[in-house]
Write a protein that binds this DNA or RNA. Structure first.
Lengths: 248, 248
DNA sequence: GAATGAAATTGATCCAGATCAAGAATACCG
DNA sequence: CGGTATTCTTGATCTGGATCAATTTCATTC
């Protein structure tokens, strides 16, 4: 998922309208580009930052995808989310200047580092940038809320369907197909994100496959019936949807 | 939980160091106080705003407590969190100017309304205020992450213990006792917040009572052994802690 | 292309917490 | 104060997803 060549600056970046500069005037974008430093290329499995690290920057995803997670005292992990191009990582460190989670590259990826001190200064000069920061933070909060609802109230099937639809929407927004994509994360990370075990993830994917709603081969996903997937999310269980008609 | 008389302005409010003005100079606090409007008194069960409402303000809790929740299509609710004095409600509406959740008073409470347009203006004039906003937003994100971890990975007992400790910490921070307090929410809201049923909440509380860790009578909670409660959260199940020694 | 190891699938069993079903305690109100 | 409606507790049973246990599939390396 490489969207832009490495040295592109914000004004020429394809992600300009999906990222921090959204809504800014061209000269404001140039100002912002001036404070962005250290574009960094990360190979798969490399950590961007670790839980507890001092963290005085935000990181925008330029290409690739990332996984953010919390390590518990008992050695287990909880995946908090996945990040795709145009999204801002490290927002939780705004609280104390220290990250409360770790972030790792799922595939080769590039990030743009935005030092917080410079960003704060620029926010006072460019009101639109401050508004956009608030929008991004509000969005992060709203999406965390969605995750809380998902983990608090849903069956395994609904969690799986919600996950696939979330990927579909985000890939679509980036200009990729919203019905055929490649999972950049392993089953264990999906399981971990959805509060399930890998066995359950595997079984749910298999069942969606048997019902013809998706076709899945390892990491390759093809969504055959987006509406049915949405129906699973809106109602509760897929069985109900099929009541009275034979499957497969 | 009435901390301050109704008409107190920010500079004289007891919550000044727990709320939005934290870290500001006295004249900056006065500037902030000038944009705060419509202190509103809400009786129990009254809604501050509804899911989907246009929402161009943030609301600081001055007294009382509030519950924030999302209503699902199937009629179920997910409680996202509880708000106590000094905390800021409505942060998710920063995304689109529309609230993604409903907020309701649990008991008689007072809120201070902070119009977003004025707040944004003031943030460009007072760098400390902008920093504080970022801190508050980062804190909200980090606490949502904690909730995701709790819902994704914990037994009923651990959820219950975590909940009690969270209340203990927050009441303590407000200057109240951190070992004896009154629950302002019903069992159903606790259940709903923790992704459990009321029956499970009731049973877990009863068991903590039998073990002598807490004493609970309806809404009155007395924590007898804070360390043991912490141990339940850090380890996994209380049974392990008691291995080998008779209970009660 | 065979050998090794990691990741994913599939099957069998188990259990924590949900659900169902009474009761008990408390609050509300005329 | 008694009657009614909520809210909470407690007990009995059930079940979705976890756990345990093989396989199978895929990726990597020589």
């Amino acid at each position: 998922m490489k969207l832009a060549p490495a040295r592109t600056l914000c004004p020429d970046c394809r992600l300009v309208d999906l990222c921090l500069p959204y809504g800014l005037h061209i000269d404001e974008v140039k100002q912002l580009a001036r404070i962005v430093k250290n574009k960094r290329l990360l190979p798969p499995e490399e950590y961007l930052y670790l839980q507890g690290d001092e963290c005085r920057s935000l990181y925008a995803v330029k290409s690739g995808s990332f996984r953010c997670f919390i390590s518990n005292a008992d050695g287990t992990e909880q995946t908090l989310g996945f990040y795709f191009p145009g999204e801002l990582m490290g927002l939780d460190s705004l609280q104390h200047g220290r990250s409360t989670c770790s972030t790792v590259a799922l595939e080769t990826g590039m990030v743009c580092e935005v030092p917080l001190s410079r960003l704060n200064e620029l926010c006072t000069e460019i009101p639109g940038l401050q508004i956009q920061m608030m929008r991004i933070l509000g969005k992060e909060i709203a999406s965390d809320h969605d995750q809380i609802v998902l983990l608090g109230h849903s069956t395994a099937k609904k969690r799986m369907a919600t996950f696939l639809l979330m990927l579909s929407r985000r890939y679509g927004a980036l200009g990729f197909s919203n019905t055929a994509f490649n999972l950049s994360m392993r089953r264990v990370h999906i399981a971990n994100f959805l509060g399930l075990t890998i066995e359950t993830v595997s079984r749910q994917l298999a069942e969606l496959g048997k019902q013809g709603i998706i076709t899945i081969k390892q990491r390759d996903v093809q969504i055959n019936d987006l509406d049915l997937l949405k129906a699973i999310v809106e109602h509760c269980s897929a069985q109900q949807l099929y009541a009275g008609q034979p499957l497969s």
